[in-house]
Design a protein around this nucleic acid. Structure first.
Ligand SMILES: [Mn+2]
Ligand SMILES: [Mn+2]
Ligand SMILES: [Mn+2]
Ligand SMILES: [Mn+2]
Lengths: 221, 221
DNA sequence: AAATATTTTTAGGGTTGTCTAAAAATTATT
DNA sequence: AATAATTTTTAGACAACCCTAAAAATATTT
């Protein structure tokens, strides 16, 4: 079990590790956490003791596997709470962060699992940041046109290019909505039409539609 | 702003004050909070300093108006979170307390207001305890049979006496469900039937139904 | 009213997490 | 390579909150 302060350090180091390969410097941590370098040194010694990071004097720190997972779970909680606040409690995306900073420290596995389910297992938060899965892994997604998917690939409908109401109404009539899973069953080179499966129904989609519909796909890196 | 620890002391003293008129003793607080009497003395000195309670050496403590309201808001949050966990996240009523102990310390007025609205402004928690209102006041309610209400009184449907599935199905068909507000429009002495308003519809209710349906009413003591 | 038992406070100390100031190590500049 | 600048660590201290042991006040018995 970690204290709020320990969790904040872990999360910060996790974020700082994302965009650089080397160890994270004491000063970088101090800046992000708005504390003094000497306080950081104290804390990273304690965290090294707890084996969530590796620390060599003057060389910065690197998270261990355990540390990475612990940090990812805090980020997961933070982002799930942000989704909750926006989706269920009418918060704007720009007013959720401070509350999520508090909520991310609540300890209850059931709470976070149920929240995940209530929200429909979201993969991105209101700022577009990826939500780590239960194992702490990120699943990078790209928004791709339906027309760019190969046979047997699938994805979740995320948006449209042409947002004319005629097009949106057409999608609605076909039962194609944001969040629905679509699998490519067949691609027809003759007219570039595509057969898809949605809600266990199969249907043919014209080239025009397929080049206007965005899906997010799990690329698993 | 109060620390978690200060909030826990305030909440404990608030609860201990409910069932006795005199000042709350150091030992009583220590017992509830599972700490030592000497620690309690330290803390109540600090809280007296902050003017949330009155402390006279060896005489126990009494909450000030400010202290009472602060404590009531913590209890309000605790109980609203308990309702949320049961109603929205499939918790059982006996597994919500520990998580609520954590969640009650989250600071965000909007969070608690929106939560209140999402839950339909509940007045009791899953254990049947009253939820203080936004001003920190309690509104004692009694469960009363619909047949006992006077003309123009209203209440929220809380349960049934006869729980046979025939009766429940009848209620369902009439659109009478737990949580719905019912107002008595007219009482007919001739056959003891009652005209009620529910969801802006008026309907006649027979004596048999009216003596099997419990409502909770605001008695405002 | 004394003596005894209980409650409460004080005195002194420990841990966590923070700070400032000074020393040590590393990095950049000349 | 020597010097200067920067980063990092150490040393010592402080506030919040908790503890144990002893002293003081209050309550209960005799
Ligand atoms: Mn955020
Ligand atoms: Mn975010
Ligand atoms: Mn509770
Ligand atoms: Mn409760």
């Amino acid at each position: 079990m970690f204290t709020f302060s320990e969790e904040n350090y872990l999360k910060t180091i996790y974020h700082l590790s994302e965009h650089s390969e080397k160890g994270v410097s004491t000063n970088a941590i101090a800046k992000k956490i708005e504390t003094k370098a000497s306080s950081v040194t104290d804390m990273i010694k304690k965290l090294a003791e707890k084996e969530v990071l590796v620390y060599k004097k003057y060389q910065g720190v690197t998270l261990t596997k355990k540390g990475k997972k612990t940090a990812a779970m805090i980020v997961r909680k933070h982002r799930l709470w942000e989704v909750f606040l926006v989706e269920k409690l009418n918060f704007n995306w720009d007013e959720v962060h401070d509350v999520a900073e508090q909520l991310e420290h609540i300890k209850s596995q059931k709470l976070i699992d149920e929240m995940d389910a209530l929200l429909g297992f979201p993969t991105v938060d209101p700022h577009g940041d990826l939500i780590p899965d239960k194992e702490g892994n990120l699943h990078p997604t790209k928004n791709r046109l339906l027309s760019s998917l190969e046979k047997n690939e699938s994805g979740i409908c995320t948006g449209v290019d042409d947002s004319s109401s005629a097009f949106l109404q057409f999608l609605d009539k076909q039962g194609i909505a944001l969040g629905k899973q679509i699998t490519v069953i067949e691609k027809e080179p003759f007219d570039d039409s595509i057969t898809i499966k949605i809600d266990d129904r199969e249907m043919a989609i014209s080239k025009k539609i397929a080049t206007n519909l965005y899906l997010k796909t799990d690329d698993h890196l």
